[in-house]
């Protein structure tokens, strides 16, 4: 089987498994998987920016927060149905991200990381400051949506499918975007900005747009999380959320679409395992996990899989495709 065919088969199998899960797992586990999908969307967003375009962001938790609060405020203040709030959150983050991307153009690597880090630090304070809208430190409590059209799904199952649906749509969109001319331009800017410019790519525009798209993905994820958890509060959007996202994309695999899913599984489940292993110092265990993981797979899970699959494909004489 060729590499591309194999990939397609694996993706299909994964989708089938994902559709069966709600009927075999407990609601609690199911909720965890919903969370995994939400993280995967956020990670894909960050990966488009950092992995594909080479702009390091330590502040994507901020866009996640903007998405979450957009949804929460629209539902809470204006009674907008949650389904409408999610695209609005995405669009708003697209605009905010694009605007943030413009001054960010002047910043290289480390300095961009620090500027976005500052943004991540400031977000909880800012959210608390606009108390009238955000409910201050108390946050906003929502109610979990029920399944429509008389579907016999409980709220957790319904939310799971909604999230899975959004995830699939956004992943297909990203895969299309990245495999075309636009995607090549985005990657070219990362690898050789001056050459890209010389080839007629408008670096500034592409970089800001990439920032916008990336923020939109993360914003949609934030919006979904507000609906799924039915609660938003400023201190959940702290610096560690942003750092967790970065951990997720590096562990999952930079510049890889499937890496976002692997990364999401890691950031959702590994802290829990760490907790199970040691109640006294769970974060120490988590840290050891992180470091050993990076030793074993310095290019992340997707990077290692790509190597293994590449070798398999070469052994079987199939063509190799770069995912």
């Amino acid at each position: 089987m060729s590499g591309a065919g194999l990939r397609r088969a694996v993706v299909l199998a994964a989708v089938v498994v994902a559709c069966v899960l709600p009927f075999v797992l407990s609601n609690f586990r199911l909720f965890q998987f919903t969370q995994v999908f939400i993280y995967a969307i956020a990670l894909l967003g960050l990966n488009i920016l950092t992995g594909f375009n080479g702009q390091i962001s330590l502040g994507h938790g901020a866009f996640y927060a903007v998405g979450a609060y957009t949804t929460a405020i629209m539902i809470d203040k204006w009674n907008v149905p949650y389904g409408w709030t999610i695209p609005v959150a995405g669009l708003l983050c697209l605009v905010v991200g694009f605007l943030f991307g413009i001054p960010a153009l002047r910043l290289e690597g480390l300095y961009l990381a620090l500027a976005t880090f500052a943004l991540a630090l400031a977000i909880p304070q800012i959210l608390k400051y606009f108390e009238h809208w955000t409910g201050g430190s108390q946050g906003i409590v929502l109610s979990k949506p029920r399944a429509p059209f008389g579907l016999t799904l409980n709220p957790d199952q319904w939310l799971y499918f909604v999230t899975l649906g959004v995830l699939l749509v956004l992943f297909v969109l990203a895969a299309n975007l990245l495999s075309r001319r636009t995607g090549r331009a985005i990657v070219a800017i990362r690898d050789n900005p001056i050459a890209a410019q010389a080839m007629g790519v408008n670096n500034a525009l592409y970089k800001s747009l990439t920032f916008g798209v990336s923020a939109a993905y993360t914003g949609v994820a934030g919006a979904l999380s507000a609906v799924a958890i039915a609660f938003v509060a400023p201190d959940t959007f702290n610096v560690f959320l942003s750092i967790t996202f970065l951990v997720g994309i590096v562990i999952g695999g930079l510049a890889s679409i499937s890496g976002a899913v692997f990364g999401a599984l890691f950031i959702q489940f590994v802290p829990n395992w760490a907790q199970d292993i040691s109640k006294a110092a769970p974060w120490a265990i988590y840290g050891i996990f992180l470091i050993t993981f990076m030793y074993a797979m310095p290019r992340g899970i997707a990077g290692s899989l790509r190597l293994v699959l590449g070798r398999l494909a070469r052994l079987s004489g199939g063509t190799r495709r770069v995912a």
Binding site: V247, I291, M294
Partner: peptide
Amino acid sequence: APVLTIVIVCIGLLVILNSVAGW
């Protein structure tokens, strides 16, 4: 390894030291 990999290792170190000190 790529710079981001090293960054993650540093973050791992950060949480280990913090957690062990607390413990």
